[in-house]
């Protein structure tokens, strides 16, 4: 036990000395790896966010909003609601008034008040919202709805039906996942090479010490541990730098996306925490493994 504690203490002190004696190279390695971690973390978050947008779109996929003219009476609207409720393709019918449309838009982050103040009236139309039984019926119902005399054509679109959105989003997420995964693998390999070279420099600086350790009979692991700890420390530090940058960027980009593009994507704190922990673990493993490989060649020389 006493020997083990002394070995651990020796390894920790030596790892600290390695890092500080080799400070410029160590920091250069850490910051380069930090940048790579930022890219890996950014890719993960981007994939997750695109996934969230797709999921949100999919929940709205079975719905079609038929925009109504402003001059319609409530009775006319009720007649059409009843007509749609008897259609076998329709699962549910709801009415959204102009005021309710404003509230819904504001919930999605859209600021309408300035427009209302300028125009002096609410520009959003009321709508009859249909939920279909199967997605395949959407196209037919859209055709039927567009031909109705009650629809508002002033905004250029009588309904919000957009047939290509889901497949397009699916192809976007597929490409994002593939590019993200390939990029992460390439970046991980680059990180490994950076760590290996940093450790090789540290090994070179301490070559006399290592030679003496080997000559007096220190085991391979006794020689190896300080370098592995140094690699783990560097990897975790790089991951912490990358993860902090990603977390800050995530909040900023999300708020911009919601106010500028009205995406309505919510901040996912749990995913961000999981990603930070994953990056830290990834940095530690990558750093330790890179060091193991870096010192291996020297030990076997």
């Amino acid at each position: 036990m006493r020997g083990l504690l002394a070995s651990v203490r020796f390894a920790l002190v030596a790892a600290g000395q390695n890092f500080t004696r080799n400070l410029a190279v160590s920091l250069a390695g850490v910051f380069t790896m930090g940048l790579i971690m930022l890219l890996v973390g950014g890719t993960l978050l981007l994939t997750h966010t695109v996934d969230a947008i797709l999921a949100q779109q999919e929940t709205q996929a079975d719905e079609i909003h038929i925009y109504l003219q402003d001059s319609l009476s409530m009775r006319t609207i009720a007649d059409y609601e009843l007509r749609f409720s008897h259609d076998s393709r329709v699962n549910g019918v709801a009415f959204t008034s102009k005021d309710q449309a404003v509230v819904a838009a504001q919930q999605r982050g859209l600021q309408l008040q300035p427009a209302i103040n300028t125009l002096g009236t609410n520009p959003l139309p009321a709508s009859i919202d249909l939920h279909v039984r199967t997605l395949g019926d959407l196209s037919q119902l859209n055709t039927v709805a567009k031909a109705l005399p009650i629809v508002d054509t002033s905004s250029g679109s009588a309904t919000d039906y957009s047939p290509g959105v889901i497949p397009r989003l699916q192809s976007v997420i597929t490409v994002t996942v593939w590019v993200g995964s390939a990029l992460s693998v390439v970046l991980a390999v680059i990180s490994l090479v950076i760590i290996m070279n940093t450790i090789r420099t540290a090994v070179y600086i301490r070559r006399t010490e290592i030679e003496i350790m080997k000559l007096v009979g220190a085991g391979d692991w006794f020689v190896r541990w300080p370098f592995i700890l140094e690699g783990v420390f560097g990897g975790v530090l790089a991951a912490a730098i990358g993860a902090t940058a990603v977390a800050v960027a995530y909040r900023f980009v999300l708020s911009q996306a919601n106010t500028q593009a009205f995406l309505g994507v919510t901040f996912d704190g749990r995913y961000l925490t999981a990603m930070v922990l994953l990056l830290l673990a990834f940095g530690a493993v990558l750093g330790g493994f890179g060091s193991f490989l870096g010192v291996r060649r020297f030990l076997h020389a």
Binding site: R2, G3, L4, S7, E211, L215, V216, A218, F222
Partner: peptide, 25 residues
């Protein structure tokens, strides 16, 4: 000689024991 120049004489000698018999009394 292969001595570690940043360590004192006593530390150089102790180094051999620290790496071969860690925690030796």
């Amino acid at each position: 000689y292969k001595l570690l120049t940043k360590l004192t004489v006593a530390q150089n000698v102790a180094f051999a024991l620290q790496v071969t018999k860690p925690g030796q009394r």
